[in-house]
Design a protein around this nucleic acid. Sequence first.
RNA 1: GUCCCUAUCGUCUAGCCUGGUCCAGGACACCGCCCUUUCACGGCGGCGACGGGGGUUCGAAUCCCCCUGGGGAUGCCA
Length: 506
Amino acid sequence: MLLAMPLWQSARKKLVTSNRVQYNHRGRLAACFRFCYRSFQMSDLRVRFAPSPTGTLHIGGARTALFNYLLARKEQGTYVLRIEDTDVARSTQESVDAILDAMHWLGLSCDEGPFYQSDRFDLYKQKVQQLLDEGKAYKCYCTQEELDAKREAAMKAGGKPKYDGTCRNRTDSPDLPYVVRFRLPSDDGVTTFIDRIKGKISIRHEELDDLIIQRTDGTPTYNFVVVVDDAEMGMTLVIRGDDHINNTPRQILLYEALGYPVPEFAHVPMILGADKKRLSKRHGATSVMDYQKMGYLPEAMVNYLVRLGWSCGDEEIFSMSDLIEKFTLENVGKSAGVFNPDKLLWLNAHYIKSGNPQRLAGLLEEFLTQKGIDIPSGPDLVEVVKSLQERASTLVEMADGAAFYYAAELEYDEKAKGKFLTTDQRATFQAILDNLAQCQQFNEEILEKTFAAVMEVTGLKFGKIAQPLRVALTGGTASPSIYQVLQVLGKERSLARIQRAMEQLG
RNA sequence: GUCCCUAUCGUCUAGCCUGGUCCAGGACACCGCCCUUUCACGGCGGCGACGGGGGUUCGAAUCCCCCUGGGGAUGCCA
């Protein structure tokens, strides 16, 4: 895995040695230095997103990835993707692919990776051995059952459910299965770090215990590999969900035990459901790609996600490039936010309204095809899209709204038919048909004149003509404006539909 | 239970660090009006919050303390 010294490592070496500065990520000196450094070279900011492939990409994970991506872009740093698949039993390639797809859809391309932790077991093994050799870790032979019993007993006694250190000073080495535990450096100490979002956080070591870093089966655990990898991959800032806050002090202790520099941390608040409980499937779709299937645009998702927990004055609409310019950790809120599907929908409607029709047409095709619609046999898709943009909130809605354009045999809404396709409309329809048939082409100006003539002949107001015609043309009472429908459908289809409607009058 | 984090409209938030310009601003949702050939879009207006209690201060949404609420952790998950 360690083939050649990666570019960033040599860059950092240069950075440290040439200035004789102790590289300290937590220190103000380092921060200040980084700033100066950036002025003449690429930033040394290195961040990562490290999902575990045990399912699809979750909304919360997507937001964490987004924050990482934005900061890296803004500071011209490096954004690394790492797959945390140390839990061999639960990790699947399927999940990896699903996560990669979602990242791609959102437009969060990484600069390095994806790296797989399962490719790096040798490295972890070596690091565990290092701690073992240095007496900073030890083998523990307690069984799962014993541990469970101890925890329960401690809880009952009103104590903390910590490991009691049975094997801590064991000198024998029985031929039994064992885990490796990290020896807590000092039982009475305090570990403090300055979180970039939350501020100062301290945890007393008495709250901690000897953490398992290697399982009975020889595989390393999360809290250990995350430290080894973040250090070995040169991360300078770790942005992750705030459910990791409690892990951070023990991770810092591991960095120190392994002789690594400690990165900075930024813990982003969780996303909750409407009931203020942790967002889960009970609250509806939580997988990013579910939203694609429901007809959402990636820019709407990105815009929504970033505004959930981050703000920039009163602004609501942000393109990716706006975000890269404006995003800062300083404006990320400290408290958990409730996922609000209504606002996401509003944003989606906004991006559909203002989106490029050609692009939307391309995206819509898939949804139309799913409905069994044969696009080439109908009117121009781009024109269809234009007529629907301000009346659809999702691509699914747009596809529903577009269906009538492509219907070979229009199905009439029962109520609409009953009300508007009645025999007393025959004269009106005939007038429309006669006048429309004379049109050389359908455009705003000609149609206006044509309908003026129809109103003249029938003595009816436009509304009285438009609604029956709408039913004849679209099958229902809600649609884009009549002129628009006529133009998109074209003369031939329009006349055919009117004729067919006249045959239905009754 | 213990520890950690957190607290402005129903929701996302601005304001808080640098107390007075805040009888708290914006957005979503909701309600009303206008526009209108339908449905929408849009425009205008309305409803609606500083969790509670103590301090500090001439003055607190803003600073301090306590309580309460919410979230997280407490895994040989990540």
